[in-house]
Design a protein around this nucleic acid. Structure first.
Lengths: 336, 336
DNA sequence: ATGAAAGCGCTAACAA
DNA sequence: TTGTTAGCGCTTTCAT
């Protein structure tokens, strides 16, 4: 039998209502100091743990938040989740992670499950660019923050790395190495990061004076090694380049494989820059030059915004962008 | 205002109690077919979602299970978690993941949080070999299954890959390549996998007729690249070998780095076998020969055992071992 | 400053 | 087969 509030109250010689007030920091001031002490002591003596379900039933809050990720196995997400979780648990929230497997149906199911669980808020890393289900929940007033994604039309608050600046860093780096024929093997067009980075690429390339024709951008259907390789082959059928900015690290790895398959070597013949700085990309050969995104910070910041919203009713509205940096390794070299 | 059972009952023209019985598959047989239909229809029309807290408060069950992992960023765990989650959600349970960060204190905190949340069961991937907190919860009757770990003294049910057979496969493979001077850079002695694999290594080596002196085993303090490198250096100060069986893939990567730092090349001078077949180890140079563990299956099987325990009261007792296979890649070669 | 009492939404014994 | 009732553990008005 677990210890209930009644037990604590009894031991402290007070009414359960009083014990409740004494235990809750918010209402503690309503109780005399001496009583608070007695109640707290009784609670500790009995190792009392409030029953969150009973509390939730009464207050209509669960202190649980759902975190939607498209694929936990993508090394991108564990740090984000971790960063968020630390911040959330600090604020007294429990994190429920749902892996949507990049599948809209599974996402819908997960969303339903979280809704049924009455989560107080949502951290969403799985949203495609247009996501009805998410938009609807948002419209219904569910506190939520997008992570590593942004929304186009709906004004969903979001926290992401600075994609535009990251791409600019990459292009600038390649320009400084003497490259002018720079291509972009872009991420999927239905994800905000894919679109954003492609857009930034075009802009950077035109500003920095490299050849930036439309021919030099190919799009991957997914963020995967296979798609990176396929798209790179497609690119190289058409044009020849000396440098590639990849939509992310997986695509970069695929690009390097495709190059190799065509008898080209990285970085001797073609330089490649990735995005994200995933674990292990420094162990590849060549070690990958890439843009490092502070993923844990992204998760943490998103969590903070969400907590502010849930606890203080301050709805986040803007997109927060965190600084990124270029990590130069072995996959980029001066133009021969 | 959310739709409650009362609303459904009202619309169906029945008493809430009846509606409850009609909605619950377990008790549905107590209700006339016509009534069931009406209630179900009303529920659908109103988009009724039962309030899990109210239900839980009554039934003392939450249909939530906690999953303790030592480090979500370790690519080992996402597949396990995923496999478990699929199986758990199929059985109607919600998964709460807690990352303990390899820190006993954090583990204790996480365990407390999960206990406070009244989870119905626990999947534990974080247990060190001796874990008081876990053992105590187990003794109190909390349904739990260890994943990827086993317990020594306490008879905790566990699901793991077949470490012994995996190590044997590795050693056999190296023997067939002609190696006799085979070392083991072992995982930590306070983790069951570290101990188990080391034990199996000694046995395999003696059975298969390789030089298996105690000198040929070094231990890492953690499963990390750095420790793998450090321990390998320590090993090579003492002896020279032509093959290394690593405690896991990270250690293998560290070993290869250490070899390189000493002017030795893998696999030309020393062959290296990893363990786990983490993502990306096939992209390293050389691509890593390693033992593939069916992580998703480990998670799924553990979840099934746990569900049986929670739902049917059938406590799992034994350790379940899942088959592993050797994946031969480029880091092993015939003895020159 | 504390006690009394009601009720959050649901289930389960009991009655009919 | 269905309705009635009580109550899970907690918070929160309303009294006192």
């Amino acid at each position: 039998m677990p210890v209930t509030l009644r037990d604590v109250a009894e031991r402290a010689g007070v009414h359960p209502g009083t014990a409740s007030r004494a235990l809750n920091p918010e209402t503690r001031s309503l109780v005399s100091e001496a009583t608070v002490r007695r109640v707290l002591q009784a609670a500790k003596a009995l190792d009392y743990r409030p029953n969150p379900m009973a509390r939730g039933l009464k207050t209509n809050r669960t202190t649980m938040v759902g975190v939607l990720v498209p694929d936990l196995s993508n090394p991108l997400f564990p740090p984000i989740v971790r960063g968020a979780e630390v911040e959330l648990s600090r604020a007294g929230y429990t994190t429920i992670i749902a892996d949507t497997d990049n599948d809209p149906e599974r996402e819908a199911a997960a969303l339903n499950a979280l809704r049924a669980r009455q989560v107080d808020g949502l951290l969403v890393g799985s949203a495609r660019r247009e996501d009805e289900a998410i938009a609807e929940l948002f419209a219904q007033g569910m506190p939520m923050v997008l992570i590593n994604r942004r929304s186009e039309d709906v004004p969903l608050p979001a926290v992401t790395g600075d994609d535009a600046y990251g791409v600019e860093l990459a292009v600038r780096h390649l320009r400084e190495l003497g490259h002018t024929a720079i291509a972009h093997v872009a991420g999927p067009g239905d994800m905000s990061t894919g679109v954003q980075r492609a857009r930034s690429f075009r802009q950077a390339v035109s500003e920095l004076g490299a050849a930036g024709s439309a021919d030099l951008v190919v799009e991957c259907a997914t963020y995967s090694i296979e798609e990176g390789a396929r798209a790179t082959h497609e690119l190289l059928e058409r044009v020849s380049v000396t440098a590639i900015v990849a939509g992310n690290d997986q695509i970069a790895v695929g690009a390097i494989e495709a190059l190799r398959a065509r008898g080209l070597e990285c970085p001797r013949d073609v330089s490649v820059v990735g995005f994200n700085d995933m674990p292990f990309v420094d162990k590849l050969s060549p070690p990958l030059t890439t843009v490092r995104v502070p993923h844990a910070d992204v998760g943490a910041e998103a969590a903070r915004l969400l907590v502010r919203w849930m606890a203080e009713g301050v709805a986040a509205t803007t997109t927060t962008t965190l600084p990124v940096e270029l990590v130069v390794r072995g996959s980029t070299a001066p133009l021969a």
